[in-house]
């Protein structure tokens, strides 16, 4: 595996049994994601794009094949090892933000840092930096209920980058936002990729969102049917 490759999927299959029927989502999926890439995965409902994202994030396991991340095979890790791996390597951005409603923006962003050995002062500094990067320094003490959808998603982005993960996984990050706000969020992701070198994998059904990525992969019936490099 090339040193530039961050993620490598070799012959990955995923199926489950429903009643007496075996349903296959992927059969023999192969892909690689390089460091510094910004990949959009598109496809119709049921094509398996969210399942693929979950497997990349270590929250779902393949039924066959191998998943390698930065030289480590992650599909054979235990639940607790995967949890630690996620904490160290992955930042998640969800469609509905998934902020803790009882915490303010600052405390939400701090959550991943509670899993590190950083001191309280260091955590506060990192949180301030992350919030400044997403332009929400003045909203640090606000609760999520006091913020717009776009602002909440920016807090979620700050939470995803605060611990400096190697990979950011986005599940329909603009699915709950209007066009203008969605563009702001996508520009922010693009900035993180372009100026800060963050590797990003984004699942979306929105072609306009996919245009912000460097590479778009079209998934249908468990297979990549099209590969599109954005100029």
């Amino acid at each position: 595996m090339s040193e530039d490759v961050l993620f490598q999927l070799n012959g990955v299959g995923k199926s489950f049994v429903k009643g007496k029927e075996k349903i296959s989502i992927f059969d023999d999926l192969n892909m690689s994601i390089e460091r510094g890439d910004f990949v959009a995965i598109m496809g119709p409902s049921g094509s398996g794009k969210t399942t693929l994202l979950n497997m990349l994030g270590g929250v779902d396991q393949p039924t066959s094949g191998e998943i390698w991340f930065d030289g480590t095979r992650i599909d054979s890790l235990s639940e607790s090892a995967l949890t630690r791996w996620r904490a160290q390597n992955i930042g998640f951005i969800f469609q509905f933000y998934n902020l803790m409603p009882m915490l303010n923006a600052q405390r939400n962003v701090e959550l991943p840092l509670l899993l590190t050995k950083l001191s309280k002062a260091q955590r506060r500094k990192n949180v301030e930096t992350a919030l400044a990067l997403v332009g929400l320094s003045d909203r640090a003490k606000h609760m999520s209920s006091e913020m717009s959808g776009g602002q909440q998603q920016r807090v979620a982005i700050a939470r995803a980058i605060v611990s400096d993960p190697k990979l950011i996984l986005c599940d329909e990050p603009t699915g709950d936002l209007d066009r203008a706000t969605a563009d702001e969020i996508l520009e922010m992701l693009q900035l993180l990729n372009r100026d800060h070198g963050k590797t990003i994998v984004m699942v979306t059904h929105d072609p306009a969102a996919a245009k912000y990525a460097k590479l778009t992969l079209h998934l249908d019936k468990g297979k990549f049917v099209q590969r599109e490099i954005v100029a």
């Binding site: 949890t83 803790m100 991943p112 899993l115």
Partner: peptide, 14 residues
């Protein structure tokens, strides 16, 4: 459930 799942995804232990 959503909060538990989110925290687990972020790396909080079970």
């Amino acid at each position: 459930a959503k909060e538990i799942a989110t925290l687990r995804a972020l790396g909080f232990s079970n």
